[in-house]
Design a protein around this nucleic acid. Structure first.
Lengths: 347, 347
DNA sequence: CTGTTAGCGCTTTCAC
DNA sequence: GTGAAAGCGCTAACAG
């Protein structure tokens, strides 16, 4: 690989001059010399060595992003896409993404190591939780990062998040417009920050429409197919005329559990019971019936994150920025009007 | 961040000495000095700067891996997992993965750029095709890489691949053992290297069992749900007693199309028609019926790739290595015995 | 305008 | 055993 020295020698100039044309310090070099250097660079096929540049500039142009360890048979559909578009957005800004892994229960050493070795300039976080130790840690370390997802309201850091509250609010309104009055929600545990926003959207729509939300209409469970099954099974134990005619699931996976269990109970999804999910996971469009769901605007989110990161890395002392990105309701066959009898029964 | 100079000053030694203890050049430094330096390093919290080390050593300890651009609503389930485990295996070997993107139709500039800027030490390729331009390019450039997937047989490079032929062979045998005789296959276009191995596995089992494979039992199509639907629709146009009672799909997505179309034709999958997929995509276990499929041993593959890469990077002049990793058949509800009448009809 | 030079943080030869 | 010093490839004062 040719170095700056080779270019200098070949072009008959000093390495400084080469460096000047490389860095567009046009004022420092005559048009003619510039032309010559450029020609030489082209001819011998020279590209600056990024390691050397980075050493000099004390940066890496690398952004660290941790994969979440995931059980073999479970995948977070959103984060997969997220990683791709993050890399894409980062490249447009002149960065690359360094992906790393860590044990779910003990993420900090991996971050610490990357900071200590000065391997990355910043981190992008995803899948944040309440009291997220990573955020606390990076805040303490005063190391640059931006987060996809919120955490504790009193922690001040840059984040971008899906406006899940609004998204679920709209989905619920959609069900109400279809004529549903008995709408239930399969939610996540109370500790889940994002789960609570989704729940709040449901509650907001129900309240606004003056529809009752009996306590047993909210069932909390893990992020699993099983949790969806159990929720539906529980609702099916209510007296028939109290059965919800529509169900908001906190995620696609939970929605799938609900759909599968509905089938077991002889219910036709989209007719006897309407179901919505959240995420627009890859396969959901091919489910029978195809799942109505709330799509997260991953492309917008990754772009916003990188823009924020550029601000952070420029060290302009702006106060932490926050951005809520709107979702999109993907209407498919899993939702329909309530059966006439069912629709009335709630009144 | 403290540097090696800080350590030297604090410990009252030269930076050379610090470097010696850092690099375990034990012979060069007395036990006592060594102890002192270590203590100082610990005290001031020093970690060597990786950029400086890499500049000196003329390497990056970074492995480039390209995400495949993917239509928004389609995800390659295998490659998502692959990326995670690749990062994991790389870390165990002291490397990190740099993920980058490129337009599907024009991958080379992205690789070229990374090589020229000396951003990475090597590449890992995935999703290889026949005449894969990336392989040809890297071979020409003589740049280190290993590949998940084969390409042209006359190109000599390091690869690891799923033993898809054997996997489909076993799956077909499984269907034969269940009593099926009219087994069809939804395959990929002829240009697909991996598709052809899968097809060969099917043919091998059929031939070995002495079962007929009429030409219309092999339908080729793209990697899409639609392709699966179209294949089944075509088979359904045959006289009823020639309908296949079992279908090997070249991928899960195609299998889903087959299942969905079967439903449209009033066929119950697992009873009237058995279906197998390939990949064990995340959601397939939750389909109704759950999909019998062939799982690729991603963890083994990534580990093997990294091991090979270490050999390549050590520049030991071993001839290119190849490794075929066995698959696992995941038996679920989409396969059953043929209906008695159907089973006979083929004879 | 152009070149000389110091140095980014580290490793390693070579003297002592 | 230890340290001085050269140098990896580059940038940017500074001098001319």
């Amino acid at each position: 690989m040719p170095t700056i020295k080779d270019v200098a020698r070949e072009a008959g100039v000093s390495i400084a001059t080469v460096s000047y044309v490389l860095n567009n310090k046009d004022a420092f070099v005559s048009a003619e010399t510039r032309r010559q250097v450029l020609e030489t660079i082209e001819r011998i096929g020279y590209t600056p060595n990024s390691t050397a540049r980075n050493l000099k500039a004390n940066r890496t142009r690398l952004i660290g992003y941790a994969w979440h360890e995931v059980p073999y048979n479970q995948v977070n559909p959103v984060l997969d896409r997220f990683t791709y578009y993050l890399a894409h957005a980062a490249e447009a800004a002149g960065y690359h993404v360094l992906t790393f892994t860590h044990p779910v229960t003990d993420p900090l050493p991996a971050y610490q190591e990357l900071i200590n070795t000065q391997r990355v300039d910043a981190f992008v976080l995803a899948g944040t939780t309440a009291d997220d130790p990573r955020i606390r840690f990076l805040l303490d370390e005063n190391f640059p990062f931006v987060s996809f997802g919120r955490s504790n309201p009193d922690w001040d850091f840059h984040w971008v998040d899906t406006d899940a509250l609004e998204g679920v609010y709209e989905a619920t309104q959609y069900l109400i417009r279809l004529g549903h009055t008995r709408i239930a929600m399969a939610a996540w545990p109370e500790q889940s920050v994002s789960g609570n926003f989704r729940l709040a959207g449901y509650l907001k729509a129900m309240q606004q429409a003056g529809l009752p939300v009996p306590p047993h209409y909210i069932i909390r469970g893990e992020h699993s197919e099983q949790a969806g099954r159990e929720a539906l099974a529980q609702w099916c134990q209510l007296p028939r005329r109290q059965w919800p005619t529509a169900i908001i699931a906190v995620s696609d996976l939970v929605a799938i559990g609900i759909m599968n269990e509905a089938e077991r109970h002889g219910l036709v999804v989209g007719r006897d019971v309407s179901v919505t999910g959240f995420d627009d996971a890859p396969m959901t469009q091919y489910l029978r019936p195809a799942l109505t769901t709330i799509q997260q605007p991953i492309v917008d989110i990754t772009q916003a994150l990188i823009e924020m990161l550029e601000i952070v890395l420029r060290k302009e002392d702006t106060s932490p920025q926050h951005l809520l990105v709107p979702t999109r309701l993907i209407q498919r066959a899993s939702c329909g009007r309530p059966a006439p009898s069912a629709g009335q029964a709630g009144r």
